[in-house]
């Protein structure tokens, strides 16, 4: 546990904000890791691991609302807040993401 906690975080510019249309998600690579970045209609940004822990579904193809992301394959839902699954299955990892001068910055 302590090892991961001490790992230094790095910020990665993965693309431009316009690359992600409102309400949708797109997959990017950040520091060799696949991440799905979402831009909600309220302007907020979210980033998660790209593959669904259930059966590898492409999360960036999922549907979203202010609370959750829904995987397109079997409709499992994951909360933005902490990546937990609403049905109590395995959680997804969520990453910090913000905009800087129009660039999407994901922190791993």
């Amino acid at each position: 546990m302590s090892l991961t906690e001490e790992r230094t975080t790095t910020a990665h510019v993965v693309g431009r904000v316009e690359d992600v249309p409102p309400g949708e998600g797109r997959t990017f690579v950040a520091g060799g890791e696949q991440v799905a970045v979402f831009r909600l209609r309220d302007g907020s940004l979210h980033a998660t691991q790209a593959a669904c822990p259930h059966a590898g579904g492409p999360l960036a193809d999922g549907q979203t609302d202010v609370d959750v992301l829904v995987c397109p394959l079997h409709q499992y839902a994951y909360r933005w807040a902490d990546g937990s699954s609403t049905s109590g299955t395995a959680p997804i990892r969520v990453f910090a993401v913000h905009e800087a001068d129009g660039a999407l910055v994901v922190t791993l």
């Binding site: 797109r26 997959t27 799905a36 790209a50 059966a55 590898g56 492409p58 193809d61």
Partner: peptide
Amino acid sequence: ATPGQFRPALPLVALP
């Protein structure tokens, strides 16, 4: 219809 409409969303991990 939107930017990146057909951009791969498939992660590099092995899928079934």
